[in-house]
Nucleic acid binder design. Structure first.
Lengths: 103, 103
DNA sequence: GCCTTCCGTAAGCCATGACTTACCAATATG
DNA sequence: CATATTGGTAAGTCATGGCTTACGGAAGGC
């Protein structure tokens, strides 16, 4: 049930913004907070949740802590998603669609 | 930003249970509530959220309303997820991993 | 060594949201 | 018809969680 934390983490808009801000490069907490409408401690708390969901990882560098995207959480989410893509479900969906049309 | 509602919908455990209970066949509200630790009105409210997220659809049948899984919401989620699977990100991830090792 | 920068944690506030009971409308059943 | 099923909605309660300010500790610069 590892995907649970991923859903929780990405359900919050601010947390998604932070996560997406890391798409192209690692950033320090201060850098991340600068682009957010919330204070730095709030960003810190969000990063904690994202880290717990295995969506980001930290790399301390002197004074600062650089966060970057980690694929583990995304992998788990994708795995969950894939389990709904079975042929059985597709066939079932088509059947429903057919019934709806014939109403 | 259609995926936002999907994240919100699937972030709640009860809502995920309801959603997953529809994997193999459509079910009425009463049927769904019977397998949940919450009351029927609660299930109704959850179904409303799931429907808004385009994760389920309704098909009234006489007295009852049969809910079934709808792929739209899942498609949107998958699309969002895929946007993080670019080669650029993979390359970047590998680079980070390399740096971490050389620490 | 002293002050600044960077950031995590604690404590408290407040809105949101997940639940309940109570109610009502619509369809089924006798 | 009268009563029972089925299920959506309203209203109210309560816990959770997202935010703030305040603080402390660790590394950088003079």
């Amino acid at each position: 049930m590892a995907f649970a934390e991923v859903f929780t983490a990405l359900a919050d808009p601010t947390r998604r913004h932070i996560f997406e801000a890391l798409r192209d490069q690692p950033k320090s907490v201060g850098q991340l907070a600068a682009d957010q409408p919330v204070t730095r401690p709030a960003v810190s708390q969000h990063l904690k949740v994202l880290e717990f969901a295995r969506l980001v990882s930290v790399q301390p560098q002197g004074n600062r802590r650089f966060y970057s995207i980690k694929r583990d959480g995304l992998d788990e989410l994708r795995q969950y998603l894939d389990s709904f893509w079975s042929d059985a479900l597709s066939a079932y969906g088509a059947e429903i669609a057919r019934r709806m049309k014939n109403k």
